[in-house]
Amino acid sequence: MSAAVLAADNLARRFGGLAAVDGVSLAVAMGEVHAVIGPNGAGKSTLVNLLSGDLAPSGGCIVLDGRDVSRLGPARRSHLGLGRSYQKTNVFLPFTVFENCRLAAQSRLATSMRFLRPASSFAQVNEAAGRALEATGLEPRRHAVVATLSHGEQRHVEIAMALATRPRVLLLDEPLAGMGAEESAGIVALLRRLRPDHAIVLVEHDMDAVFALADTLTVMANGRVIASGPPATVREHPEVRRAYLGDESHA
């Protein structure tokens, strides 16, 4: 395995007396999908928020490209190559699909303190936004206002915005949430295409997608990692079967 692009070491986050994330370590390399699964309340979303900088850790550290980013906010981490999507769609509903991606791509300008030149005239921003639309198959919907899109399409916008910032690490928090089978297959295919150029942390409930994509699988319960490794090994882990997959899930 090549060197980790993003690594968490002994990460912890407490909310009052509750240890939502408790001593979690994981690493993800370029070209790798590291899936995180676990029952509701296992601490998966808290983990993603810690990795993205939306939450500050109570303990442990996060290393991005060999640099300790534990104390940096989400904006700084974004500029260091971290892109994320949200479990609950978190986009700019009144804007068009293109403007959502364009604004995301605009964040890569050295500064947006530009007051007179039209934002639409920055070629490299438009290109990055256009590429994100192409990658996610949203090109035909570029002029549609996001609020008018279907849930599945909005999930695509969510990922397209993360891509438009040209991240090397993608943190995807349940990208398949609320999707039908066909839409899910579309996202799985998209993530396959993205894998070679990205290090992907994928939090997901959809087991078919997880086993189709994951190179490494980490199982969490009650804020702790109970197993981690290649998916085939992890799924046979007795504690995993008891805590999460259920004994009947051999098939």
Binding site: S78, S112, F115
Partner: peptide, 29 residues
């Protein structure tokens, strides 16, 4: 009018609609 169409104006629009996401995108809002 120029300001509204500029990168700065678009950032302000984004902040009004969803400041949290603007920060996640890397804007020091």
């Amino acid at each position: 009018a120029r300001l509204r169409a500029s990168p700065f104006g678009r950032v302000l629009d984004g902040i009004r609609v969803n400041e949290h996401r603007m920060r996640a995108l890397g804007f020091a809002t």
